[in-house]
């Protein structure tokens, strides 16, 4: 049975990619499990960089995540129904008829439905790319890369997760590790839906605690069990106590921060590969072993 673990955090920069890259490496190279990694932070995807970079691109294809309305002005009667129906203010009346503001358009198609003369059709639009690659540390990774300035990141995340499951099935994988986007919005909800467990990465700051609490609410709405990794705990021991108090037994482990973490980024090697017996690595292994116990 394939288990899907999502790594997320309410606030950015707390160490999601650090944790997910090391978790994937641990499962594959310490426990000899079959793993598929999915980078669902589609606005800033860099999981594969933390996994040793791209060794080999296996496949790459564009993703048509949205539809754009095209108005046939030879048919349009300028009745304005489409403008009134659009909930995103993406249409306004121009000289020759309604004009679409493509930056506001969500591509859902209400305008086309209400048009009494069928003057509005749709064309597919590429909003990103999906890349399957093997990383330098021999991990199969599927990455979604959203075009700059695009919305609908949630749809790209859904597609990545779907393809990750197909890939996991054909590879007979035991685990899928999903590196989610920061925040609690659409791409994060898409990352969470249907997954087995959520690992929330927290750093000892009030901003991170606040974000994590908001994320636990989302997770509970979706009925997904969550656990906490307290990362960089030694950078603020006082506030780390607050985090422990807030999440109690849900905290799997407190992981210290040291400069080897940065070295591991710089060398594009997971810390567990670079310094497997450092303090930070030991804490990571503890955390992951506990995680596997609670996920069963």
């Amino acid at each position: 049975m394939i288990r899907e673990i999502v790594v997320a955090s309410g606030k950015g920069g707390t160490g999601k990619t650090f944790i997910s890259s090391n978790l994937a490496f641990f499962l594959k190279h310490h426990l000899n499990k079959n793993v598929v990694c999915a980078d669902a932070d589609v606005e800033a995807p860099d999981l594969i960089l933390a996994l040793g970079g791209v060794r080999e691109v296996i496949s790459e294809h564009p993703f048509y995540g949205t539809k754009l309305p095209v108005i046939d002005y030879s048919v349009c009667t300028k009745c304005g129904s489409c403008i009134r129906a659009c909930r995103f203010n993406a249409l306004h009346m121009g000289e020759t008829g309604p004009v679409v503001d493509y930056y506001s358009c969500e591509g859902l198609g209400t305008c086309s439905l209400v048009c009494p003369v069928n003057a509005i059709s749709f064309k597919d639009k590429i909003i990103g790319r999906i890349i399957v690659a093997r990383s330098g540390t021999d991990l199969l990774t599927i990455t979604g890369d959203l075009e700059v300035g695009e919305s609908n990141s949630g749809r790209l995340v859904y597609e990545i997760k779907k393809e990750a499951h197909d890939l996991a099935a054909s590879e007979k994988a035991d685990y899928i590790v999903v590196d989610a986007a920061p925040g609690i919005g659409c791409p994060v909800i898409s990352s969470l839906s249907g997954s087995d467990i959520l690992l929330i990465v927290v750093e000892p700051t009030p901003q991170s605690l606040k974000g994590a609490i908001r994320l636990t609410k989302v997770s509970e709405d979706l009925g997904i069990k969550w656990y906490i990794i307290l990362n960089k705990y030694n950078l603020n021991l006082e506030f780390s106590k607050e985090i422990l108090k807030a999440f109690k037994s849900r905290v799997l482990e407190a992981v210290p921060y040291d400069f080897e973490v940065i070295v591991s980024y710089s060398r594009m090697t997971p810390l567990l590969s670079l310094k497997p017996s450092s303090m930070t690595s030991m804490a990571l292994k503890n955390a992951f072993n506990k995680l596997l116990k609670v996920i069963k």
């Binding site: 930056y103 300035g149 919305s151 990141s153 986007a181 920061p182």
Partner: peptide, 11 residues
């Protein structure tokens, strides 16, 4: 802004 490079940030 939040992290990212999406539409609202572009706006």
């Amino acid at each position: 802004t939040p992290p990212g490079t999406g539409k609202a940030i572009m706006h």
